[in-house]
Computed example of a mutant assay.
Amino acid sequence: MDRLSPRYEIENHTTSVRDDDHDASFTVRRNGKVFYIQISPSQFVNSPIMTEKYMAYLEVLRLGEEVVGDIYDTDVYEWVFTPFEPLFVELAPNTPGDPKDTKLTLHEHLFPDFFVFALDIIDEKRCPRRIPRERSPCRPSFVRFEDDFLDDLEEWTTFYDPVEVTLSFKNPEDALFKQPRKVLIQKGRIECFFKFCHSSVQITRELKTYKMIAAAGLDCQLNLCRIHGVVMDDSDFILGLLLTYIDCAELPLSMRVHPDEPDDHPPAMRQRWIEQLDTGLGRLHEAGIVWGDVKAENVLIDQNNNAWITDFGGGYTEGWVDREMAETMEGDLMGMAKLRKFIFPSE
């Protein structure tokens, strides 16, 4: 946000796809605390001007564009959050001590102190209204597994309580504001990528694939993302996976290679990437394992310019693999052919 504003991070916003539902909700994080903000025109009183403005802003949110007409998404966020900034400061004050000493567990991030508000508009004025809630309106996960599947998981991987997982940021204070990517387990000895769990179907397929990769011993031989463990809370909800942390500056292959700039990376380096991908996919197929959603976004290039195969959650992406070939070896080969063309656009 603007430098004169208190620091906070907008985690997400949601709107309805129904034409007759004009509600919106926002999630904001500041200093380790979370604010849930709800907006409904049903709570607007004697405010036709603000109602018209809100409806225009709602369209920007629904379209997910940075700018629609002369309205920027930053205009929308400023309009929504400015009335709450004094409350952000009051309810989520700066933590005492040196920010460099900030240390948060995954449990503290996923189950934070929270506040629920509505943004009412009365006589054309934006009026925050607090809504008392004992329970958070959001849970980090609703995914559970049957006992037999959990018993099998315990045979080949490790379960972690979120209190055993520590957030890791280059700037430690960012742990109070941002979603984690890198986390630490086993008292800080192992770096992992934390993948949030949103779909039971996807996570089940992914876990089965990681089991096959481990059984074939491929996770130790190739540049394949491997699993270090599963994070589960006290209620047996699966919160996420602990995967290989690949230091790629958060840039997948899709953002490392620019088709309009064929000389951006030397041909020898590009050849190295395609050979590593070909080798990895070939060994997967020899073991009877399907990669699945083959695309440039699922290839990571690490700091040593090695190409890594990631994301075994299945599915397909239009333009990379045809729907009828999704999650098949034939689909993998189709996606690999598209990857080769992406890496070597002039061929």
Rank of each mutant, 00 (worst) to 15 (best):
R3H: 14
L4C: 13
Y8A: 15
I10Q: 11
T14D: 05
V17G: 09
R18P: 00
D21Q: 10
D21W: 02
H22Y: 07
D23H: 08
D23F: 00
A24Q: 01
T27G: 04
G32P: 05
V34C: 09
V34G: 06
Q43C: 02
K53L: 12
Y54R: 06
Y57M: 15
L61W: 02
L63A: 11
G64A: 04
E66R: 10
V68E: 03
D70F: 06
I71R: 00
D73R: 10
F81K: 06
F84Y: 05
F88Q: 12
E90S: 15
A92V: 03
P93K: 07
N94R: 14
G97V: 09
G97C: 10
K100G: 04
K103L: 14
T105D: 06
P112G: 04
F114R: 12
F115T: 10
V116R: 12
I121G: 07
R133T: 13
R139P: 00
P140L: 12
V143D: 04
E146C: 05
F149S: 05
D161P: 01
S168A: 13
P172G: 02
E173R: 14
E173A: 13
G188R: 08
R189K: 14
F196E: 09
S199T: 06
E206G: 03
M212L: 13
G217H: 08
L222H: 06
N223R: 13
N223Q: 13
L224I: 14
C225M: 14
H228V: 06
G240N: 01
L241Q: 08
L241H: 04
T244N: 09
H258G: 00
D260P: 00
D263I: 07
D263M: 12
D264V: 11
P266K: 14
A268R: 11
A268C: 08
E275R: 15
D278S: 15
T279V: 14
G280C: 10
L281M: 15
L281K: 08
L284K: 06
E286F: 01
G288T: 08
V290D: 02
I309N: 04
I309M: 14
D311W: 04
G314T: 05
G314E: 02
G314N: 05
G315I: 08
G315R: 09
L333Y: 01
M336H: 02
M336G: 00
K341H: 13
I343N: 01
E347Q: 07
